[in-house]
Structures are given as structure tokens and as C-alpha cells.
Design a protein around this nucleic acid. Structure first.
Lengths: 233, 233
DNA sequence: CGAAAATTTGACGTGATTCAAACGCAGTGG
DNA sequence: CCACTGCGTTTGAATCACGTCAAATTTTCG
């Protein structure tokens, strides 16, 4: 294995923080660009919840994306470096997922299209696929975020609440369902030790929030569960 | 605000774990499906690194996606429920990002296309956009994962290494650069308290890994930095 | 039924957050 | 010019949540 600083490789094996691969694509997209704009430090490019107006490509400078949950807290989800694309996460929902603010003077290209349908020659199925991907991306993101920022009990409560919703959405009871996964798998997914999971399930049962017999779970007190989900710190 | 268990809502405000929105799309995709297959518990649908062969839609049952890093450890990244799509994260790179295994008897639809180009009537620019999204998704994922699984010092080291690479990729020195963001923003991004970040930067300077004067950062010892990135536990 | 795997429970250590206070620096106004 | 104020940063001390280790208990399955 050759000695390497790890700093000269174009791509990272693990711990990827930025992709340069998009740099190639940018060339193609630039043809579609009509506007060029400049932002000074602390100026806002777009706000969370704004209707999707198209993508932006960073030419120079650096920007940050802030995502603001219902609860008070804000998350800094992205730094955008030159060559990177802003707004990919908005394709799915049609709204920008976070507020984007310049942290230094930045130049941007705008690729305008209000609705993804206006993207030239886009077929319905592709549109759906794009939406799907974009949505999956932001869902995945918010899930991961939760893993980091929320304590273990909140994570578990969210998991049960989400499962409950899933079963309900598919026509089953939201209060009683079977989860084939083992405790180990569940713990893995929720990023906690099996022991922690076990303790929490015990605690939830003591608090009469739910019951767990083998792989059968019953949500006894949905309100209590929901109140844990909302719990902060 | 009406009383609600939070369990009956189709979508979640925060802490989204699963999307039902894709269920609609599935109808469209199903027309493209040619194969139906069944998997029993613990049977593998596809392996991480397998060349992309198309998407799968879960009809019934449940599956898990395991992602295996260079290092020993495995992560359970997804549970796939009925109606969800498997393989979206493979579009970008052309390889499946993780091993997918059934955790109970499951039925699947296969939407076969080996290369994304074979997706019917797909234009070059759309293809690129899809790739871009898919790639962004998996990058985002690995970044987030790192946040969870790695201690704070490793995260910070990764951040500097990634920044270094970014600057290098854009034609600047990888060893000396300016980051306009404040410590607070950096800490936010890295999911740690400002105090922790400050302590770590101090430590890195003591260890003569880097120097930080205001917003100017110098990586003095790239090898030492890289060795922290690789550090396990 | 018996061995192996999965789950639960307890004791303990530790990394990171929190609280608190001090410090440096920039801009403002007296 | 210098005190005053506010903001960002640094440092220290105490706390806590969670992971690790170890052992007991239950469940699974050949």
C-alpha cells in the first residue's frame, strides 16, 4: 500500500464530504443558464419553502444551506463549493428544502425552470423518477439528521411512529403490527447499541407506551409516543 | 391545534423515516416491469458492488439494505417496505450501493435496465441529472453516516481532508486555504458543540497537524491528518 | 431436549455536551 | 485616544447519555 496523504485523490473512499463528479455535468447544464447573479456575504439566495424556480450552480465563493425544523433548532446541512449544484433536493417536493445563504461573495448561474416539467423534453416517467430520487434524498437526509441530533429514546419513538404510519398507509392497523427484524437489526438501523435498544423497549413497556412480545409490537399509548417524538433535548 | 396521535398523518413533519409518496409513482413504473420474484428470509436480492441491473419495487414483505465500509463495520441503511423502490442509489455510480437481503418472505417487481441509458426515451441531460441526484444522495448518505459513527476528532479531520481535496480539485493549494465560515457554522455542519470544535482545533494545533489563524487554515502534516481520518474507534 | 443464538439486565468507563467564565477583537461613541 | 459594548472564540469543570464489558435469562431450532 503506497504512502499517501489522502489529500491528492479525486474521490474519497470513506467519509466523502464533497463530490467533484458533478463538475462534469455542470458543463451541460450551463447551456441552459440564462442568468448570472452575485451575492455578498450573509445575503440570502433563497428561503426554505420557496417554490422551486430551478437549480443554481456555484461559480465562485461559498454558500451554506440552513434547514429549520418545526422545533426551534436549525441545522446547517450543506456547504456549497464552486461547481456544486444548489436545489437538487427541491425537485421532489417543488419547494426548496432549506435556506441558502452566502458566507462569502459568491457568483452563481441560474438554470431556471419553475416546474420540473418545463425541463426540456422531459418525459413523464423520467420526471417521476427524478422526483422520486430527490424526495428519497431529502427523506434520507432528515432521517440521518435525526440520528445525530436526537437522543436514543426519541429515535426509537420516531421509528415506531413511522412504522405505525407505514402500516396505516398500507391498510393495516397502526397500533399493532409485526416487525420481522431482530433487535440487532433494529438497533443497527437506529444507530444504537443492542443493549440500549433493549433498555429503551423495557422502559417504554414500563411506561405503558407499548408492548413487545417477540416480533409483535403494540402501541398502547400513541399520544405518549408522539410526545416523545416531539421532545427536545 | 387539534389533538393528534401523530400516527394517522400520511407524511411526517420531522423525523421522517419512510415515504409513502413513492407509492403513486410505482404505478407508472410497474408497466415497465417484466419479472416478478420471491425471496425467503435471509435470501439476498443483490450484493453491494453488483453492476446496476435496474430497480426493484417491493410488493410485500420487508428487506434490509446493508452497507459495508472499507473498515470492518457494517451499517444497516434501509428497511424497504411494500411500495418502496430499491436501487435508486445505484443509478449514479452504476453499482448497487449496498447488499439487500430479505428479512421475511418478500415479493418483488423488477424493472430491468442495465445502464441508465436503456431507460426508455431518456435524454442525455436528464440522464446526467438523474446521475447527479443519485450520486448526491449516496454522498450525502455516507457523509451523514460518518457523523453518527465517527468520534468528533475523526469528523473534523475528514472535514479538513475533504476541504483540502476540494481546493486541490479546483486548482488551489490543498495545504493552505481560507474558509469563510465561522466556528459556529463549522461546528453546526459537523454536528458538534462549538466548544468541542474549539478544543479539537487547539489539539490539532498542539499536535502540529495544522494551524488556524482566523479563517486561514494551513495543513502542516497531511499524513497525520489522514491517519486520524482512518482511525477507528 | 440441548446447544447456540438472541435478548435482557447490571456495573462501569468515557467522550461529548452543558454551564460558566475569561479572553480577544471590531466597531461605536464620548 | 480610550473605555464600552457585543460577538466570536477559547478554556475549565461538572454532568450525562450512551457504549462496552460481563453475566443471566429466554428463545430458537436442529
Amino acid at each position: 500500500m503506497e504512502k499517501s496523504t489522502g489529500l491528492d485523490k479525486p474521490y474519497v473512499e470513506q467519509g466523502v464530504l464533497y463530490s467533484h463528479s458533478s463538475l462534469l455535468f455542470v458543463q451541460e447544464l450551463k447551456n441552459l443558464s440564462q442568468y448570472i447573479l452575485t451575492l455578498r456575504r450573509k445575503n440570502t439566495l433563497l428561503y426554505q419553502g420557496d417554490p422551486f424556480q430551478g437549480l443554481y450552480i456555484v461559480q465562485c465563493g461559498m454558500l451554506k444551506q440552513m434547514l429549520q425544523s418545526k422545533n426551534d433548532n436549525e441545522q446547517l446541512t450543506h456547504f456549497f463549493l464552486p461547481g456544486e449544484i444548489i436545489g437538487l433536493d427541491a425537485i421532489g417536493e417543488g419547494f426548496y428544502a432549506g435556506t441558502v445563504i452566502a458566507i462569502e461573495t459568491s457568483g452563481l448561474l441560474h438554470i431556471p425552470f419553475r416546474r420540473i416539467e418545463e425541463f426540456p423534453n422531459l418525459q413523464a416517467s423520467h420526471m417521476q423518477l427524478l422526483r422520486c430520487l430527490s424526495r428519497a434524498m431529502s427523506l434520507e437526509h432528515s432521517r440521518m439528521w435525526q440520528m445525530i441530533s436526537q437522543p436514543a429514546d426519541v429515535r426509537l419513538a420516531c421509528f415506531f411512529a413511522a412504522m405505525s404510519r407505514s402500516f396505516f398507509a398500507r391498510g393495516y392497523s397502526p397500533y399493532s403490527f409485526r416487525l420481522a427484524m431482530s433487535r440487532h437489526e433494529m438497533a443497527d438501523y437506529l444507530c444504537m447499541a443492542v443493549e440500549t435498544l433493549s433498555r429503551l423497549i423495557s422502559r417504554f413497556q414500563q411506561q405503558e407506551i407499548l408492548t413487545a412480545r417477540g416480533h409483535e409490537y403494540c402501541i398502547v399509548n400513541p399520544d405518549a409516543l408522539a410526545s416523545i417524538v416531539v421532545k427536545r433535548k
